[in-house]
Structures are given as structure tokens and as C-alpha cells.
């Protein structure tokens, strides 16, 4: 296809992506260098006949408003926002590292900083949910592959539901069941014989609930892909493995799993990307007291009732984008090498 025709065909799509994905990234980068204006303060002298004159400072609402309207970006702050307490917290980290009471204390104090708190949960979620969901999906695929064909349709139908459901809605459904007055929460209270047990009360329980929800939500995707992959496992290889005396487990280990490996890489990559932006479950479970994620921090900054903290949100966004690129880099490097070899 000649260049002209190619660009004519791809123009709408490319324009949409450049305008609404590439340009916003630039906009985020610019915004992250600015912070909102401080309030304009004026000094007013009030004099009364008896007590003399007093000076007081007042916030000049009008001037503040005008300044903010004239320069909506705020004032230039360089990398200040990145380094402040709500983001990388460089001074705080320095203080913690130079003066702490052992490893446990360091971790606890670092965890109290908002950015690291969000990062800790985001990374835990990404790297716990992804492998476990893939493992569960693989087991389901093996199980479904062995049931009579007649039942496969309905089983796949129900299996798709946790994945296809709107993430916020799915989170709410599970949250209501897991709340102390819902069926799951109440049953757990009875089973563990602890009538005050509430999944919301402790950080550990909230994390576990969110992780379990994540695995429930993500397993169907791996299941569907692995199930399709199982249909293409070469018959001959399996049979010759059997003739060579391979047990059922050995056949799975040495024939099926290697065959599914390319699929697993793909599933893993997609799941890592999706889990890294974990956001809706935290809103759905109202878990922000115990677990926050990078996406949630950005949302929280933007949602502010009084002031929307564009600069702060943008700085977290930039750090998130860096995280995404680090996650993607092995894939990008590998593709680059493959491409050059061709």
C-alpha cells in the first residue's frame, strides 16, 4: 500500500490516538511541573479610636479567583511536586533512613507516606493477582476440558460473568456479600466464632478481600485463553508421551504447559497492564482507609471538593506512567530484538 493511501486510511484512528492519548500525556507532564496558586493575602490595617491600630492579614478571595482564572495552570514549581511529602517524599525518606529503629520501623514509617502506601498496594495487587488468577484459570481450563461437551456451554457462560461484569458493579456485588450484614461476612463470623469480625476493620483483611476479588475477576480471562489453547495441544505428542510412560501429571508438565507457554506470556502481559491500574475495586469496596492504589490517588486528587489538585494528580500520573513503562520494558525490548533479527 502506498504511503499516501496508508495515511489516508489510518488518519482518523491515528489522529484520535495522538489527540487524546499522546497529547494528554504531554499535558500531564506540563501540569506536573506546576502547582496551584496560593491564596492572595492582603494586610489590612484597622484603626479604632481607643485600642489603636491593628494589622491583620486577610485572604483576598477576589484577587485569588482572578489569579487562578488568569493562569489556570498555577505557578511553576519545577520538580517540587514530585519531591514533596505526597509523592516521592525525598526529605521524609532521608529522615527515616538516617534515623530509625530497625527494619520494621523503616517499613512502617515509609508505608505511612501516601505515595508509597499506594505503590505498595498496587504492586502487591499486580504481582499477587496476576499469577494466582492465571493458575486458577489454568486449573478451570483443565477441569472444563474433561467434562462432557454438553455441559461446556453453560459452564463457559457462567465462567465469563465475573470478567464481563462492570468492575465497579462486580466489586459492589462482592462487597455487599462480604459486609458484616451480608451472607459471606455473616457466615465468616459464625465460622470463626467472632461476632465482631468485619472485613473492613483491619488492613490485612481488606487487602485479602481485594486480592480475592481480583483473582475472581481475572481468572475467567486466563481460563478462556488457556481453554482455547488446550484444544490445539498436538494429539500425537500427547500420545507418544503416553507410550513413553509419562504419567498424567508429567504429560501436563512436559507437553501441555510448554505448549501453552506463549499464551501464558500474552495473558500475563495483558493482566499485568490491567492489574497495575487497579482502581474500581477500591471505590467499590470503600477500601481507601486501608488500601489505596496509584490510580485511586489520582482520582482522589481530581475529585477534591474544594480544590482539584491538578499538579499533584499529574505528578502521580507521571510516576504511574513510568511504572507502566518499566512493566512493559521487557516486552518492548524483546519485540525490538525480534524485529531487528527479522
Amino acid at each position: 500500500m502506498p504511503h499516501r493511501a496508508f495515511f489516508a486510511f489510518i488518519m482518523p484512528s491515528l489522529a484520535a490516538m495522538l489527540l487524546f492519548i499522546a497529547l494528554p500525556i504531554v499535558s500531564v507532564a506540563v501540569q506536573s511541573l506546576y502547582v496551584q496558586h496560593e491564596r492572595v493575602v492582603t494586610e489590612v490595617e484597622t484603626c479604632t479610636p481607643f485600642s489603636g491600630c491593628t494589622k491583620e492579614t486577610r485572604v483576598d478571595a477576589e484577587a485569588t479567583e482572578k489569579l487562578r482564572n488568569d493562569e489556570p495552570l498555577g505557578r511553576f514549581n519545577g520538580f517540587g511536586t514530585y519531591l514533596d511529602r505526597n509523592h516521592l517524599a525525598v526529605t521524609e525518606i532521608g529522615a527515616i533512613l538516617s534515623d530509625n529503629a530497625g527494619f520494621k520501623d523503616t517499613v512502617a514509617r515509609v508505608y505511612n507516606l501516601p505515595f508509597y502506601r499506594a505503590l505498595a498496594f498496587t504492586l502487591t495487587y499486580t504481582f499477587v493477582v496476576t499469577p494466582f488468577a492465571m493458575l486458577l484459570g489454568f486449573c478451570i481450563a483443565l477441569g472444563v476440558n474433561a467434562i462432557p461437551p454438553f455441559y461446556k456451554g453453560p459452564v463457559i457462560f457462567f465462567s465469563l460473568l465475573p470478567m464481563i461484569v462492570t468492575p465497579l458493579v462486580g466489586a459492589l456485588i462482592v462487597y455487599w456479600m462480604a459486609s458484616s450484614q451480608g451472607i459471606l461476612g455473616a457466615t465468616l463470623q459464625v465460622l470463626l466464632n467472632d461476632p465482631t469480625l468485619s472485613l473492613k476493620s483491619s488492613a490485612v483483611l481488606t487487602w485479602i478481600t481485594l486480592l480475592v476479588y481480583g483473582i475472581w475477576h481475572n481468572a475467567p480471562f486466563s481460563f478462556v485463553v488457556f481453554y482455547a489453547g488446550l484444544q490445539t495441544v498436538p494429539h500425537d505428542t500427547l500420545e507418544s508421551a503416553m507410550i513413553d510412560g509419562a504419567s498424567r501429571w508429567e504429560r501436563i508438565r512436559f507437553v501441555v504447559i510448554p505448549h501453552l507457554m506463549p499464551l501464558a506470556t500474552f495473558v500475563g502481559l495483558v493482566q499485568l497492564m490491567d492489574n497495575f491500574r487497579v482502581f474500581e475495586p477500591i471505590v467499590g469496596f470503600s477500601a481507601e482507609a486501608n488500601a489505596t492504589s496509584l490510580s485511586w490517588s489520582i482520582f482522589n486528587d481530581l475529585r477534591g471538593q474544594v480544590d482539584q489538585l491538578f499538579g499533584s494528580a499529574a505528578a502521580t500520573s507521571m510516576l504511574t506512567i513510568v511504572g507502566v513503562i518499566i512493566l512493559l520494558s521487557p516486552v518492548l525490548v524483546r519485540t525490538w530484538r525480534d524485529f531487528n533479527r527479522r
Binding site: 490516538m17 499535558s27 500531564v28 506512567i321 512493559l328
Partner: peptide
Amino acid sequence: LALVFRAMPHITLVSGYLL
């Protein structure tokens, strides 16, 4: 490029749009 764009968390893009 599309793959990299696909990986961008939506909320980071939103924070670029709002202002």
C-alpha cells in the same frame, strides 16, 4: 505505539484532559 497506549491507565489520561 498502540500497545504502549493500551497500557496507559485511563485515569492518568483523564488527569491530562481535565484542565
